[in-house]
Each structure stands twice: as structure tokens, then as C-alpha cells.
Write a protein that binds this DNA or RNA. Structure first.
Lengths: 340, 340
DNA sequence: TTATATTGCGCAATCGATTACATTAAGTTA
DNA sequence: TAACTTAATGTAATCGATTGCGCAATATAA
């Protein structure tokens, strides 16, 4: 276990001081080209590796950024992460990923932990439960960039990258209307979360703009689970005047609904259309591929990362950016009544 | 932006030295209970937060562990991560996740980066390409625990947690045989990777143990993609003497095969059985749920984390552990010819 | 009562890199 | 040539926490 070589070792080898070595390694213009080369060569020879911790301690910059999200094992989130990585790793950052499991308390703890670990920034997608903002004001007070993605909260000083959920929902609903559906139901999850509220509004306004009635009993809340989708579809179809289409705010909900509809021999898409939301991979694998709204998770991650980098580059100026990505409707068989 | 409080601030407030404060905070037995209480109270009052970087620099322990894997946006891997987190976060560790995208060069870079960041340990699932071991011996030389999961390499000093791929494949094949299939084909990916080699061996030996012939043309290599599965199935069915079952080393391969089989009106499971590997979520969502071998990713992650903790607890003693988890065959409709 | 533990805490070095502030030598200008 | 730049490097403090060693005060033993 050979001791790691430090700048002092290099200094000793060249009979100069550690300060000079440090400057040479950092390509400081006040160091002569000759010395730089000597230092670089010796560093190489001695197999020198910069001790990130020491540098971090002194400079206050850890080169770590924290990413907080509800779950990692969901395609949407893991793809966002991939986007973040693609931007940040090449810049020398490390990504610390933390899951909240939709638990506000855990979210608050995690923020504290990351702050103690001296992260240079925090990218976060809110837990469902969260309504406290104290932990976020703490982040901002410490002048640590805070960027929300997907699930945001409006806080002065925090940036955000979100999807235009309203537009996505509007487009999906409009598409169903264009397919000839007139009694369109909506499955939502937790209307207290902004994203679901926006999806509902998009759905609602598309109906209104097309002079279709908005039946309250056509909007059902459910957990984002497949069984819940089945159950909700059952209830909808048991109505006196059942719907002829469903726009679901989640893909699993849509899938559950389709399963129930098939089980009661409803023909999709001939007699019933379904559109989901998130464009989860399975939607295209199904025997009956499911139409869905794509959230561009890769782009969202990259964008959030870029916003973070901007904020780092100009720590003095206070930047606050709110970016909204445009969703893409992926039209598949589950809603293709008419061939266009 | 108030300056962070340090142990010196606490010391000054109580008119004692920072050394005492440090010891009190670390619950050192040489500090009196009274002093400890005072320090703790004052720390609370001044909103003191330990600077992890400083502690890390001094102690050489960063409380970060690196997790390296090919992709994060695959259910198997993201669930392994969840398992790792569940064990390590409560112990105060942070998890730095890095993706190799199956690129050996990137893997080597990543290992270097993590080492420079002074991680306390590295948990890794090999990239497909990797055959170099230099970067791993470097890790071990620095006395940093190295634990492989799922995709391993045999290196002195490194531990591993893997699945008994052989057994999983054997059971799957045996199950197909018990369903009455006699001409069982096998879709594999990259036979140079140990996991696929073992799956092949399991398949092969199950056939041999049942005195079934092993036809070379029944084993096909493919990428882990759905189209490849379709294509491979086409080739298999075009054989003079086509198979009556497929055991695929990947779920996407199985799905692609099923899609092709359906398209040529082969009845599953009546006339043809299919079993996949990995138990990806979609396998149970399908209209025809696909049998698959579950890899217990959560358990794998937890186990790998525990092995790491063990190694940390006894840094002096050299522990090398190889753990093999038992797979579970999830029998679903795609291979249920006979009701048991 | 003297010798010896034990308890509680301070002193100061240390981890490795960074950087404001000298300092020295060489080059330039008038 | 004196006065002044400029270039290149050195000095030493600093980031915040940890820890071996030592010392004083109190407790225990002989």
C-alpha cells in the first residue's frame, strides 16, 4: 500500500515549493512553461493523483451535485439521470443520487445530508408529499444552486425545467376527439401535485374548446398502479352513460384500463380509444401498443444540468430560469381509430 | 449568506478547545458527560453542521461509495441500486452512481475518477467489453474494497455477489421439458460474458440430463433487443425441424420471439412455450404474461452492500467473499401448457 | 501520607491543496 | 545608471476536523 504522492512529493523531487507545483498543475499563467512541463512530467512519473477532498475543502467546491428524486427504478427518472450525467460527468462532476420514495421527511433529510456533504448544487424532483419549503430556502440561503425538474415548486431563486403537462394533456385529448371520441374520461393520480393538475386542466380545456361537456364522474383518481387502472375502468364502464375513450395521466393506469376493457370484450381502438402519459417503454411493446405522451426525459435531464452549469458559471449574478419542454404525443394503435 | 459554524465557534462559545468539541461530538469516552451535553446543546443552538469534507480529508474516509454499472435505466440495475441504498444510506454513506454504457474505456476512467474522489469502496457490474483488469488491481492496491455484482471477474481480493445463472437456466429449461417440450431453442447474447455462458451451460445440461439432443442450430446469438428477438425467432422457425420452445437469456428476446410467433399464428402456450430471463416488469403486464427467471435485484444490491460494510468493518483482515443468489423461476402463461 | 491511577481536557501537528502577499531576479525606460 | 516593471517563484496562512501526546486535577491504593 504505497502512500499516495502529493504535490509535496513533486515539489521535493524538483526542489521547488508545493505552491509552484499547485500553480503549475492548475496551469497558472504566472508559472513558466519550462517549470510547468517539469512538474507535469514528474507528476506523471510519480503517478500523482489530485486529492479531490483536499481541494474541495480549500476551495469550497466539491464537484459533487446531488440529484433527488422519488424513485430511480422508473424509466422516466432513470433517463433523466442519464441526461444529467451526460452533461455533468464530462465537466468533472460526480452525481450523488438519492431517492425519497415520495416521503417528505426523507426528502428533507436528504437535502440536509447533501448540504453537509458540500454539494455544489441540487437537482430535485419533488416527492408527492412535499409541501414544506424550509429545506429549500436553506439551500438557497447557502447560495447553492437549486433546480427543480418535472415536479417543481415556485420558490424565488430556484430554477426549474418542466414539461408542458397542460399542452401534453391538451394534445392527447384533442387527438382523441379527432378520432371521433366524444365521451372522454380522465384518470388522474394526485391532483394536489402540479403536474397532475395541469394534465387535468389540459384535458378539460380541450373538451371545452371542442364544445364537449365535462362530466365530473368521468374524472377518477387512482394510484399509479395497474390494478387501480383496471378497477377505475370497471367503475367507468359501469356508469349509466359510459365513456368511449380514456386519457390517463399514467401509463400503468392506461394499461390497467385496457386490460379490463379487453376482458369485457370492448374493441380497442374500434369502439374505445386510450392514451396514456409518460411513454414508458412497455407502451410500445404491448400487443396493442399504447399511445402516450412522451416527456423527453433525456432532454429534461440535460437541460436541468445545463441550467445548473450556467448558475455555477455566474455565481455572483443571481439567475433564475424556468424552462418548459414541449411534449410529444406518440400515437399508437390504442387510439388509432382513423388512419390518417 | 451567514458563515457556517465550525467546531471553533462552539469552542469559543464555551471557552474550551476545538479538540474537546470534536471529541464531544464524536462521543469520545474521555470527555465528561457534562461537557458533552454542553457541546451538543451549543452545537444545536448555533446550528452547527459537520463539514464532511474536512473530516474526510483528515480521516481518509469520504463516506462515499461508487457504484458502476452498464446502464441505470434498466429495471434490474436500478433495483440493485435501490437495494444498495437501502443498506448504505442509513449508515451515512452517499452513493455515487456511474454508467459505463458497456464501454471498457469509460469504465476504466470511472474507476480512476472514483479513486481520486477518495471513495471508500466500489461496487461494480462489469461492462460487456471489459477484459482488462489493471484498473481493478489498482483499486485493490489502494486497499479500497471492490465488490462485483451480477457481472463479475475473478480477481484475488475482490468479492462478488452474483446470481446462479446456471441454476436459473437449468430450472427454466427443466420446466419447459416438464411442459412436454422436446425441441428447445436458446437465445443468448454475448457468450463471452460469464452470465450468458452460464445460462447456456444450464440450458445445455438440463437437456442432456433429460436425454434430449442439443442441436447447435437451436442456439442463436442476438443483441438484447426486441427486433433481434423477432428476427431470431424467424430463423428458428424457418429451420427444417423447428423448435417447440425457446428459453431466452433476455426478456426482450423472449418478447420479440413471441411477437413473431403470434404473427405466424403459432399458439402459445399450446403449441409453443417461451421463457425469458430477468423478470422485467413488462413480462407480467403483457396480455400473454411471459415466464421469466427472477434475479432478485433488490437482494443482490443489499447483499453487495453488506459485503462492503463487512469489509469496512475489518479493513485489516482481508476478506474475500463470493456469494451466489438463487434465482426464482416465475412461471406465467407463456409456458403453462399443463396446469399443475 | 505518599505513590499511583484515572479522568478530563488542552496543545499542536496533520490531512493535501490553494492563494494572498511577499520576494527576487531579470528586463525596460528615461 | 537609477527607477520602475514584469515575470517567476517562495512564504505562510487557510479550509475544518481529527488525534497522539502531555499535563493537571482528582481518586484510589498502599
Amino acid at each position: 500500500m504505497s502512500k499516495k504522492t502529493t504535490i509535496y512529493d513533486i515539489a521535493k523531487a524538483l526542489d521547488i515549493t508545493a505552491a509552484t507545483v499547485s500553480r503549475a498543475l492548475n496551469n497558472n499563467p504566472r508559472i513558466s512553461a519550462d517549470t510547468k512541463k517539469l512538474v507535469l512530467d514528474t507528476a506523471e512519473k510519480l503517478n500523482y493523483k489530485r486529492n479531490g477532498l483536499a481541494a474541495a475543502l480549500k476551495s469550497g467546491k466539491s464537484n459533487n451535485v446531488g440529484v433527488i428524486l422519488p424513485f430511480i427504478n422508473r424509466n422516466f427518472f432513470s433517463t433523466v439521470i442519464r441526461g444529467i450525467e451526460e452533461e455533468l460527468i464530462p465537466k468533472g462532476y460526480h452525481i450523488i443520487i438519492c431517492q425519497t420514495h415520495e416521503d417528505e421527511k426523507k426528502e428533507m433529510e436528504t437535502v440536509q445530508n447533501l448540504l453537509n456533504a458540500q454539494v455544489d448544487g441540487i437537482l430535485i424532483s419533488l416527492s408527492r408529499q412535499t409541501d414544506n419549503i424550509e429545506h429549500f430556502t436553506q439551500v438557497l440561503k447557502k447560495n447553492v444552486p437549486l433546480i427543480f425538474f418535472d415536479r417543481k415548486m415556485d420558490i424565488r431563486g430556484a430554477s426549474s425545467v418542466t414539461l408542458d403537462d397542460y399542452q401534453g394533456a391538451y394534445n392527447a385529448t384533442q387527438h382523441l376527439i379527432e378520432q371521433g371520441c366524444t365521451k372522454i374520461a380522465h384518470m388522474t393520480v394526485d391532483p394536489s401535485l402540479l403536474i397532475y393538475k395541469n394534465r387535468y386542466e389540459g384535458y378539460r380545456n380541450a373538451l371545452l374548446d371542442n364544445e364537449l361537456e365535462v362530466y365530473p364522474e368521468f374524472t377518477v383518481n387512482l394510484k399509479s398502479e395497474i390494478e387501480a387502472g383496471r378497477e377505475a375502468a370497471r367503475k367507468l364502464m359501469d356508469l349509466e352513460n359510459p365513456p368511449d375513450a380514456i386519457f390517463s395521466a399514467t401509463d400503468l393506469g392506461a394499461l390497467g384500463a385496457i386490460q379490463h376493457l379487453k376482458s369485457i370484450n370492448v374493441k380497442i381502438p374500434e369502439d374505445f380509444c386510450v392514451v396514456g402519459f409518460s411513454n414508458e417503454p412497455f407502451t410500445q411493446f404491448m400487443e396493442l401498443p399504447i399511445s402516450s405522451v412522451d416527456q423527453s426525459p433525456l432532454l429534461m435531464g440535460k437541460t436541468a444540468a445545463k441550467v445548473f452549469l450556467e448558475q455555477m458559471d455566474s455565481k455572483d449574478v443571481k439567475i433564475q430560469k424556468s424552462m418548459v419542454l414541449t411534449p410529444t404525443l406518440m400515437i399508437r394503435q390504442s387510439s388509432t381509430k382513423l388512419k390518417s
